[in-house]
Design a protein around this nucleic acid. Structure first.
Lengths: 219, 219
DNA sequence: CGTAATGTTGAGCGCATTCAAGCCGGGTGG
DNA sequence: CCACCCGGCTTGAATGCGCTCAACATTACG
């Protein structure tokens, strides 16, 4: 029913345009998802680690709309969508779980839009690192020491920055005593300081509206 | 079962943090959804018109994670989530439809991430306008002449730009003969030109990786 | 060990931002 | 009916953040 599949580093689990047949749960390893426009621009839309689900975008049109690329040798659990639907009809908690997973992805992308739309480079990278630490912590790994699985360019694409800006911002964080960085080895020494950067160092922010006074409508 | 509700211009249909109880289908009118961070920054995450669904973000945690604000007097169809789940168990096409709607929202936000992460101001506004025209066309309205329902500031927040940049870019488009703009009245005279701006005027773009040569992994 | 990919750092520039001033249009009250 | 006001829009000037281009260092990998 739900078989396993190995995906070697650098290869794709699925590609944009391919027919959608299954969802994938990451068992081990690390993935990125990215979309490309006609003119060759590529945008990393997410990084997925163990326990996270890939392929939800394919449901809407029976075709995948992004590429999923393994950033290290990985293993996924293949969940044929047709079987999943049949099963979901029987087991109603399964249906609920799937909907929650999809909703969570929607919420995640809301946060990413906020990041891309109204944060500065330092804030973006700090938010990115803290997000990683949270996800590692949940999985029982040390949250303050990690090895990045992606390149500076991929981080930059995900955060809407160039690879040079990512590199420079890492260096600045190190100078400011927030972390130690040595290539892909990261050790965070001041998580509180990083959090302070995310939510509101006294800068101004772009594209943001001061919350207007609005009343709740009693239908 | 699915009752209706009126939402006056400027009032909220739901707010972030409120318990999630229902989905809403826009019957008439126009909405924006926006998320806010602790420090008061606000990001518009979408605009919704007739036929589009609001509230999907609330499923994941039983709480809404964004605000939905009516930009004009509107009417929505209230779809209690509990009832929807019960019904979806019976009618399997309903379950599928809901999943498709959620997946479509995920795909939409992928596109928005691409826009925010790797497009210039002109490209963003052009893409925004073309997206609006498509949605109007589907609904049987004239796609080239429209009245914007949102302020420059809200457009800016949605596109990750300041209101001044939005205004200036409108003016530049008018000078270039792409459209006529008079406050919120827009008349597009050269949709092809707008499309050309979106997909690849000869500029360079930020945060993008040239697509690396990667092979499809045969499980 | 050698080569290519990845990462770091510097210099200069440009696009979008910030700050500021003025305009337009719609609604309200005298 | 007009004067006034206020939110929204436009436009200008100057600044600065992040980008581009470039050179070099380091790491990964066959």
């Amino acid at each position: 029913m739900a078989s396993r599949q190995t995906v070697k580093r650098g290869t794709t689990l699925f590609r944009s345009g391919e027919p959608f047949e299954a969802l994938y749960a990451v068992r081990t390893g690390f993935f990125k998802t990215c979309v490309a426009s006609e003119d060759g621009r590529e945008q990393v839309t997410g990084f997925q680690m163990a326990g996270e689900v890939l392929g939800l975008d394919g449901i809407s049109s029976d075709r995948h709309t992004c590429d999923a690329v393994a950033l290290e040798d990985s293993q996924v659990c293949v969940i044929p969508y047709e079987a999943l639907e049949l099963l979901a009809k029987e087991v109603n908690t399964l249906q609920q779980q799937l909907q929650r997973i999809m909703s969570r992805e929607i919420v995640r992308t809301q946060g990413q839009m906020m990041l891309l739309g109204s944060m500065h480079a330092e804030e973006r990278l700090a938010a990115f690192l803290l997000n990683l630490t949270h996800r590692l912590e949940v999985r029982g790994f040390s949250p303050l020491s990690m090895v990045l699985r992606m390149t500076r360019e991929e981080i930059g694409s995900f955060l809407g920055l160039t690879l040079e800006t990512v590199s420079r911002t890492f260096s600045r964080f190190q100078n400011d005593g927030l972390l130690f960085v040595r290539s892909r080895q990261i050790r965070i020494t001041d998580p509180v300081g990083l959090q302070a950067i995310v939510d509101g160092s006294p800068h101004h922010h772009r594209g943001t509206a001061p919350v207007a006074a609005q009343q709740k409508q009693a239908g």
